[in-house]
Computed example of a mutant assay.
Amino acid sequence: MTKEQKKYNSELNRLRIVVEHVNRRLKIFKILSDRYRNRHRRFGLKSNLIAGIYNHELTL
């Protein structure tokens, strides 16, 4: 691989690991890791609330 490709891969991996950590933290809430079996119209609201809780934890 060229130096440019290695640099691009390392930058991509840095971004990817951040996203994977966020996914892991959100999957702690079972609603996002298991099959959702409740009313589907409320799923968006509940997932937004979970994301809000996570964002609040980041600011503390």
Rank of each mutant, 00 (worst) to 15 (best):
D34P: 01
R41D: 07
T2S: 13
R42G: 01
I50N: 00
R42A: 04
I17C: 08
R24E: 12
V19R: 15
N23V: 14
N55Y: 02
N55I: 05
Q5K: 14
N38L: 12
H56Q: 09
H21S: 13
G44Q: 14
K7H: 11
I31E: 07
Q5Y: 08
H21C: 08
L60A: 07
Y8M: 09
R16L: 06
R37I: 07
H21D: 15
R16Q: 02
R39A: 03
R25V: 00
I28A: 05
S47Q: 15
G52K: 14
A51W: 06
K30T: 12
Q5G: 04
R39V: 00
I17G: 11
L60V: 04
L49Q: 15
T2F: 06
E20D: 10
N48R: 12
N55F: 09
L45S: 08
G44K: 15
R42Q: 04
T59H: 10
Y36K: 05
I53T: 10
F43N: 08
A51K: 07
N23H: 13
R35N: 13
F29R: 10
I50H: 03
K7I: 13
R14G: 13
R42M: 07
F43G: 02
N48W: 04
T59G: 06
E57S: 12
V22D: 05
L26N: 07
Y54H: 05
R42E: 07
Y54Q: 04
R37C: 00
H40A: 06
R42I: 02
R14A: 15
Y8H: 07
K6W: 00
L32T: 05
H21E: 15
F43S: 04
I28Y: 09
E4N: 11
K46S: 05
L58D: 03
Y36M: 08
I28D: 07
K6V: 07
K27N: 14
A51Y: 04
K3H: 03
N9P: 03
R14C: 05
R35H: 09
L12P: 02
K30A: 15
N48M: 08
H56E: 11
R35S: 11
E57D: 09
H21L: 12
Y54L: 03
Y36Q: 00
E20K: 10
L58E: 05
K7E: 14
V22R: 08
L58I: 03
I50A: 02
H56K: 14
N13C: 09
F29K: 09
R39K: 14
I50S: 08
I53W: 15
V18I: 13
R35E: 15
K6A: 09
Y36P: 00
K6T: 00
K3D: 07
I53K: 11
R25K: 15
S33I: 06
Y36G: 04
H21M: 11
L15W: 04
K46H: 03
S47N: 11
Y54M: 01
Y8A: 03
N9C: 02
N55G: 02
R14P: 05
K27Y: 14
L12H: 06
